[in-house]
């Protein structure tokens, strides 16, 4: 753009202030050479600059002040996008963490339930235990005195080693089998071996008979050949082998471990000995009725009882 008398004013201030350079400075100098009157004017021009008067103040500032309030964060553009994305990621992470914790709690809860159930069975000594399928789970070394007021019947299922049924009596002293049981789990009725000759035990005592005697009883199945497993945690003095067939004998287990308690030698009974059985005390049982034992309580070894319950030996005695 060439500089002339029409437009020179827009370059004059920059020229006076020394802000022109290069081609514009040369053009301005050439213009001033062509117009000496304008050059003289600019050379004589004294630049005055105004200064702000600090004494002049606005004395009504307070009327302009607004009350400050907590305001929402103003975000826009990509900042808003990043903020929303960050919140979304945080929420997803938190929800995932929460769900994982829920799963862990469930596992712990189920484990605790199992432990609690086992604790109940182990802490509260049961006066009577029903064993399915001839499972021998007694261990008199761990037998304790039954807890007062907690006369219970426990059914233990084979190979699962857990309590599937807990039946509690109202009165510990008056044990009534299968009366008002507290069902922790549906009892599993297992079919007893059919090899038990029910006709052999026409007078086999029933749980009701045991109730009359006010003594917990053991109902033992006749098929003792299947007694190959033994539970480790059964500490009940009263064990009942629950079978579909009629029990052939009713005996009471007592925490008597001394062989000296045996009042009658096993040889005299002519019974076989099985190590899986512990000391038992025979009260009024089918064995007595069958004449296998004299009157009164007798202390016999469990192994002898097993032998008694073997159909062949029983039949031979009968």
């Amino acid at each position: 753009m060439s500089i002339n008398k029409i437009n020179y004013e827009q370059f004059a201030m920059d020229y006076l202030e020394g802000n022109l350079n290069g081609q514009q400075l040369r053009d301005m100098e050439q213009f001033l050479e062509r117009h000496p009157d304008i050059k003289k004017e600019l050379e004589e021009m004294e630049l005055f600059y105004l200064e702000a008067d600090e004494d002049i103040v606005f004395d009504q500032k307070e009327s302009l002040i607004k009350e400050t309030e907590p305001e929402a964060i103003i975000v826009s553009g990509y900042r808003k996008w990043w903020l929303m994305s960050s919140i979304a990621v945080f929420l997803i992470f938190a929800i995932t963490l929460f769900m994982l914790n829920m799963d862990v709690d469930k596992v712990h809860s189920s484990d605790e339930t199992m432990v609690e159930q086992k604790t109940i069975t182990s802490e509260k000594q049961q006066p009577s235990v029903t064993i399915d399928n001839n499972e021998a789970i007694t261990n008199n070394d761990e037998i304790n005195t039954p807890e007062e007021g907690s006369n219970r019947e426990i059914i233990i299922e084979k190979n699962q080693e857990k309590v599937v049924e807990i039946k509690e009596d109202v009165n510990n002293d008056n044990f009534i089998p299968n009366s008002n049981p507290i069902q922790k789990e549906q009892p599993v009725a297992r079919q007893a071996p059919q090899s038990v000759p029910t006709e052999i035990n026409p007078q086999t005592p029933t749980p009701e008979q045991s109730k009359k005697n006010e003594e917990p009883v053991i109902f033992a199945g006749t098929d003792t050949s299947s007694r190959t497993t033994e539970s480790e945690n059964n500490a009940n003095p009263k064990v009942k082998h629950k079978t579909e067939s009629t029990p052939i004998a009713s005996v009471e287990l007592e925490p008597i471990f001394s062989e000296t308690s045996i009042t009658k030698p096993m040889e005299d009974m002519q019974l076989e000995v099985d190590e899986q059985f512990e000391i038992v005390k025979v009260k009024e049982t089918r064995l007595q009725k069958l004449g296998l034992f004299p009157e009164g309580k007798r202390i016999i070894n469990r192994s002898t009882l097993k032998s008694v319950l073997i159909p062949e030996s029983f039949a031979s005695k009968d």
Partner: peptide
């Protein structure tokens, strides 16, 4: 601009605007 920033503007620029206007 927040209300707090607005108040900052009042304190910083009110005198200067007033001078500009009154001149």
């Amino acid at each position: 601009m927040t209300s707090e920033q607005y108040n900052i503007c009042v304190r910083q620029f009110a005198d200067r605007v007033f001078r500009f206007v009154i001149k």
